[in-house]
Design a protein around this nucleic acid. Structure first.
Lengths: 149, 149
DNA sequence: TTAATTTAGTTCGATATCGTACTATTAGAG
DNA sequence: CTCTAATAGTACGATATCGAACTAAATTAA
């Protein structure tokens, strides 16, 4: 394949990623209360799977958003009582965000509704397109992430 | 594979898509002037490849953003003289957005800088991860898109 | 130990996003 | 032809995003 076709493919890759992200965020946000964002929901899921919690900085690295955005998102999640924020005993500059039982409950309910909404798509596509692309996506994400310094 | 592993994989797929989108948008936006957004840049590229132009509604469908957001983005691109907006002669409710020569120029310059910035990543990964995942992404995007009504 | 540097998080301000409600125009029904 | 419904785009307002500058705590250097 010619090099220009390769760059073209890379460009289309990122375009498709952008559109899929847009589609799935919109679909998810339709289920979320108020102005809650797909990223905020992702953070909640991340925390539910990590009972020891994480610091805001770890979360902004994981989701690749600026820490100033993270401050805002965590404050919003805390207002909804879906997470708690306490100062880190090991480092008083820092904080620990943890999910609450209500947070886990809320996540579960939303995930179920989302699964229902996605069911037609999944039964049409089957698991293969996801299964086949996931390792490549992970590889690309890791490389982009490592190169960022 | 168990069904729950499949849904888990779908969930991770969308998470990776979100993070890659975040990484690449941030990287691109570092090259863009002022507050110009990765999506706005994508719109410009779309228009440069379509000399007859498109209506705002076509663009909001292509990029899956609300038309009210499109109004804002197009106004911004027009302010920078990267596109023109004229009323559609066939339908006076509607408009046609077209790229200007400056827009094409600007796109080219930014793409070149972006290619340079991505060169280390591409030489590390090679074209295969993009090439292999692109058809799956397109399929998923199309299915999500069709199912949306 | 003290001073300088680095780091975690926040405040503030500018701008982007997008839902609701609106206007103008077109299409369709009778 | 006229009236109603649908459609393209916009104004407005609420909220999200995020860069720059800041504060406080921890680390390193001297």
């Amino acid at each position: 394949m010619k090099p220009e076709d390769e760059t073209n493919e890379v460009y289309r890759f990122f375009t498709e990623v952008g559109i899929i992200n847009q589609l799935i965020s919109t679909k998810l946000e339709a289920f979320l209360p108020g102005r809650m964002t797909a990223t905020q929901f992702g953070i909640l899921g991340h925390l539910v799977r990590r009972p020891d919690g994480e610091t805001p900085l770890q979360l902004s690295n994981a989701f690749q958003v600026p820490k100033t955005s993270m401050t805002h998102m965590l404050a919003s999640l805390e207002n909804h009582a879906l997470i708690t924020l306490e100062t880190n005993p090991n480092d008083k500059r820092s904080k620990i965000a943890r999910s609450t039982p209500q947070g886990a409950e809320f996540l579960k309910a939303c995930m179920e509704r989302m699964s229902e909404a996605l069911a037609p798509v999944l039964s049409e596509l089957g698991p293969e397109p996801f299964h086949r692309s996931l390792p490549n996506l992970t590889l690309i994400r890791e490389t982009l992430d490592n190169e960022r310094d």
